[in-house]
Write a protein that binds this DNA or RNA. Structure first.
Ligand SMILES: [Mn+2]
Ligand SMILES: [Mn+2]
Ligand SMILES: [Mn+2]
Ligand SMILES: [Mn+2]
Lengths: 219, 219
DNA sequence: ACTTTTTTTTAGATTTGTCTAAATTTTAAT
DNA sequence: ATTAAAATTTAGACAAATCTAAAAAAAAGT
């Protein structure tokens, strides 16, 4: 079956919200999509009759397994396009989200298959988020927040949760990017800031706010 | 200003129909877009209030210079994407039109700028049609139909007007593609068929119907 | 010149996705 | 346990894009 751009955006947003909380609320979804709660209720009725969500009035909702599969497919398209935009067209990663938001709705399966192959079957998008495979299987990257890493440990940056231009600017300043290796020197108890050393650069201190947005894995 | 997918499709179709006849009729546009004449009239009123067309009731219509510029920009996007699909993703040229029909509406100017550069500023799309530049300037490729070429002349295939899978199959069989060099041996008066010789292949005869769809230029 | 046919436009509905304002239900607070 | 606040749903309206059926205008035929 084929879904409208609007339906796809709703499905994908429910998916993303479900990563944090099992069941999603009307307000949170309205907020995510920059629409009004009333619109969400309307769309949810539709998604329910199409059997993509479990929904009980006033009780919140979640994707069922069909809905989940569709969501993962949209996420797949979104992230493949983001990868294309950064690695082939040379966009900065803070500029690609909105464009991928449109490209993800182009509905040819063959297109995505070929794009995937053209990009050499990437596993993660430019923000470090895993790209689901054709069957909707998505790698769970076990990662920790920089604030949780013990001192003197070497880690690799795997993803960044805040993907704003301001964050990119900051990360650039610190020479941090996805897959950068860095060492945690010390956590400061006073304000939670963290001293790190990025490859051959002089060690520096990042605020807790920044550290909280950087996710890393060992080795 | 920003236009809806529907508006863009109408604008582009008017542009294409104007290549053949100066002013476009309601029926022909409805036919081109697979809609009903009533829908065309509705949309034309809108395009008129947006000052993109010259339109007099019952009299037909045409794009004004603003409308023309917008059309050329859509055509530019469409053809750049077609080039991408064929030359980067390996699609056959009979499979790309519908996908480009969707991609052309993705509205980032930066995207198209970078795509153009990524593709090395191509001048023509996979069907041999010229790609308008950023300013809406489009090369007029002076070309002739194969039926009009005098015998014993060497020519280069510049475009193909029928872009169906059936035509592609036929052309493949004859080893004809865009920019293929071939020689016209003889025109047969009986049925208008044409004997041609394609590079090192044995000479062959193509029907008038096929010849009429192949456009070539000298040298 | 009149009549018929074709083309185009209007009138009125329909679908999709959205909104505001009011009603309802749930949750939190006293 | 009531009451107040917050969240959610309903009711009703609206814009965009489409359609069908009927009316109007233009073109073609005799
Ligand atoms: Mn989207
Ligand atoms: Mn991403
Ligand atoms: Mn289109
Ligand atoms: Mn083309």
């Amino acid at each position: 079956m084929n879904y409208s751009v609007s339906e796809e955006n709703y499905i994908k947003s429910i998916y993303h919200l479900q990563q944090q909380t099992e069941t999603v609320t009307t307000n949170s979804l309205a907020n995510e999509l920059h629409t009004k709660p009333a619109s969400v209720t309307d769309m949810l009725k539709k998604l329910q009759t199409k059997k993509l969500v479990e929904y009980e009035k006033y009780r919140g909702f979640k994707l069922n397994s069909t809905g989940n599969k569709i969501a993962l497919n949209i996420v797949r398209r979104h992230r493949l396009w983001e990868f294309f935009l950064v690695n082939k067209l040379g966009f900065e990663w803070d500029k690609v989200h909105d464009i991928a938001e449109e490209l993800e709705h182009v509905s040819s399966a063959d297109l995505i298959k070929r794009l995937d192959s053209f990009l050499n079957f990437p596993q993660t998008d430019p923000h470090g988020d895993p790209i689901p495979d054709t069957n909707g299987k998505i790698a769970i990257i076990k990662q920790q927040c920089l604030t949780e890493i013990a001192a003197k440990k070497n880690v690799v940056v795997s993803s960044v949760s805040n993907q704003s231009p301001e964050m990119l600017e900051m990360l650039k300043h610190y020479h941090i990017a996805i897959s950068t290796t860095l060492k945690v020197n010390k956590h400061f108890a006073f304000d939670g800031s963290v001293e790190i050393k990025v490859s051959q650069h002089a060690s520096c201190i990042i605020s807790q706010q920044v550290a909280a947005n950087i996710f890393v894995h060992h080795d």
